[in-house]
Design a protein around this nucleic acid. Structure first.
Length: 296
DNA sequence: CGTTCAACCTGGGCGC
DNA sequence: TGCGCCCAGGTTGAAC
């Protein structure tokens, strides 16, 4: 499920791997799908070995690890910086502990921290829809640059948000999932932030008006920030775990997601589920009405 | 512009 | 206990 809060939690959780030299990389046989953009396991293993993880960044729902060379004086081929870009998609996890099960480990890095301690980092993915890429600076631009991802949902300003989506005829819920417009929002948090803002998910962006954009912008930040504080949402299938292999805690705060038929915590009306762009949308028909409203 | 569908995968939950 | 469905935090590309 990883959306922005889960991926940000992963980023923070694997920050302990910064400074680690990769001694060995392992791609368990056949567990990394041969996708066009994914390097062959042999190349991955070869090019990762000896590198040092210099930084870990997040671009929308992707994690990018900057890889350099050790500064211990040895003159390796001073290759350009490389980026290990991981897209967890539905069930991918980046872990420094665990994994939940051995059978879905897709990439395992073993290494040594600056202080000499042994360390490790692994990519685990039950469904195997996630992707792993190893790219140079230009490749990073292609994969995570502004052509591909809009401003981060935690960073975007209200004017920019309105400039990017305000004229769109799309339903606001669908538009929020457009990573080129604004990066990081997925199906779960789109529903939650629209509830928090009191906006009907079916409303076309171009009909939202000033007040609703303001409420949405505020709710976007508040929902995502609180979800990060609680380390993301672990749903009933328990797939999502933090980098330390622990569940998130934001699921207890869900107001609408996966709550079809249950009473809205604010007004008691039954939560509805509809389909938009082939995906479930959950909302409260009373609190999220097209009609003007009185309370936030 | 926009939507719709299929594809990529594994596994949990439900009705029968 | 099992089978056959339906469903899922995402993204992409083709077709209309």
């Amino acid at each position: 499920m990883p959306e922005l809060p889960e991926v940000e939690t992963m980023r923070r959780g694997i920050a302990s791997a910064i400074g680690m030299r990769i001694d060995a990389a392992e791609v368990p046989r056949g567990r990394l799908r041969p996708l066009a953009m994914q390097p062959e396991p042999e190349r991955l293993v070869k090019e990762l070995s000896g590198r040092v993880i210099e930084a870990v960044g997040r671009f929308g729902k992707r994690i990018a690890c900057r890889l350099g060379w050790p500064t211990d004086g040895r003159e390796g081929d001073r290759d350009r910086v490389r980026w290990l870009v991981i897209e967890p998609r539905m069930t991918g996890l980046l872990l420094v502990a665990g994994p939940p099960s051995e059978e879905h480990v897709r990439l395992r890095l073993r290494g040594t921290h600056a202080d000499g301690a042994a360390g490790g980092l692994l990519f685990w993915d039950r469904r195997g829809l996630g992707t792993v890429r190893l790219v140079d600076a230009r490749g990073l631009e292609d994969v995570c640059g502004p052509q591909r991802l809009g401003p981060d949902a935690l960073q975007i300003g209200l004017p920019d948000l309105v400039a990017r989506l305000g004229d769109s005829a799309r339903a606001v819920k669908v538009a929020l999932l457009d990573q080129r417009a604004v990066a990081g929002i997925g199906n779960l948090y789109a529903a939650e932030m629209l509830f928090a803002a009191g906006i009907d998910p079916r409303m076309p962006c171009c009909q939202l008006g000033r007040a609703r954009w303001e409420r949405l912008h505020l709710a976007m930040r508040q929902v995502l920030e609180e979800a990060i504080e609680l380390e993301g949402s672990t749903l009933s299938d328990a797939t999502y775990r933090t980098a330390l292999n622990e569940p998130g805690r934001y699921q207890a705060r869900h107001c609408v997601y996966a709550r079809e038929g249950k009473p809205c915590g604010a007004c008691g009306t039954a939560i509805r589920r509809i389909i938009q762009a082939q995906r479930s949308t959950f909302f409260c028909p009373a609190c999220q009405s097209r009609r003007p409203r009185r309370k936030a």
